[in-house]
């Protein structure tokens, strides 16, 4: 049977693509962010995942407003990155795992999640850059992947509680996959930030800290908030914490924190990183 080795949650911002391409990891502006990762690299070498299920949100590369799925699951054997319009380098294609994709799709629909399934899917910086941060020395990402895209572009968004349940259902489905594979769950986005409007530049350190602590102590803590309350507390893009919640929910039972890092700002974003594993 497949086994979940743990969950990694990380911020994604396009500017990271440039920082990586220009080797700015030790630059004073970027160092506090990149310094969070070496312990994660050590952990990954230890737990050796074969596959990653990645919760992320598309920013208008694969999906436009003509068709906007709430939950979309990739079902391909390969996913390509592409030009997003601002000239960050495109990363090589990522291997998929369509067997796991279909196992998840079958289990999720059985549990009344009405999904969009994608046999072709471009993946944007929210998917590609966190994977590059996790495996920086590999030209091609060494794990197979299953992208799970949650809409944060067009409201109404799925509630925090619904995203938590999606994560739980994915965790259970991975646990019932009849393959001897180690699976890591990844959630990318957040933490607090807002790009648009007169409130652009908003972050909320106190809330982010409490949210990060809640993932080990009281994982459903954030589900008490409505989406609009989360936007008010964390910013219009801070609501991407939904990916963190889904990733955390995929871990059954009690978890311990393996690594945690938090830094304001990278780009306009309060940047967070956590690694969680079951006790």
């Amino acid at each position: 049977m497949a086994r979940i080795v743990g969950a990694i949650t990380s911020t994604h911002v396009p500017a990271l693509g440039r920082a990586i391409a220009q080797n700015l990891q030790q630059d004073p502006y970027w160092k506090p962010f990149f310094d969070g990762f070496p312990p994660v690299h050590d952990w990954l070498r230890e737990v050796k995942p074969d596959v990653a299920v990645v919760f992320y949100n598309d920013h208008g590369l694969n999906f436009f407003l003509d068709k906007m799925p709430t939950f979309a699951v990739g079902a391909a054997d390969e996913y390509s990155n592409a030009d997003e319009g601002w000239g960050i380098p495109t990363l090589p294609p990522f291997r998929g795992d369509s067997a796991l994709s279909w196992h998840l799709i079958n289990a999720l629909v059985e549990q009344e999640f009405d999904l969009t399934t994608c046999q072709e899917m471009l993946v944007d910086h929210a998917f590609t850059l966190p994977l590059k941060l996790l495996w920086p020395d590999d030209e091609v990402c060494p794990v197979r992947t299953v992208p799970v895209c949650i809409n944060t572009v067009q409201f109404p968004l799925p509630s925090a509680s619904r995203c938590f349940k999606l994560g739980q259902a994915i965790g259970q489905a991975v646990g019932s996959w009849d393959e001897d594979q180690r699976v890591v769950i990844i959630g990318t986005g957040g933490l607090s930030h807002q790009l648009e409007g007169k409130r652009a530049g908003f972050t909320n350190k106190a809330f982010d800290r409490e949210f990060m602590a809640s993932l080990t102590r009281d994982p459903t803590w954030a589900t008490r908030y409505s989406i609009e309350e989360l936007v008010e507390l964390t910013g219009t893009q801070g609501v991407e914490l939904l990916m963190w919640l889904a990733a955390r929910a995929a871990l059954p039972g009690k978890v311990r924190e393996v690594q945690s890092n938090y830094h304001i700002p990278i780009s306009n974003t309060a940047a967070g990183l956590m690694v969680l594993e079951n006790k």
Binding site: Q154, E196, G197, K198, R199, F202, E232, T236
Partner: peptide, 16 residues
């Protein structure tokens, strides 16, 4: 019915 968040536009069906 929507919550009014200062300096923030919620991109809902109307905006879309």
């Amino acid at each position: 019915r929507r919550r009014d968040i200062p300096g923030t536009t919620i991109f809902d069906g109307e905006q879309a």
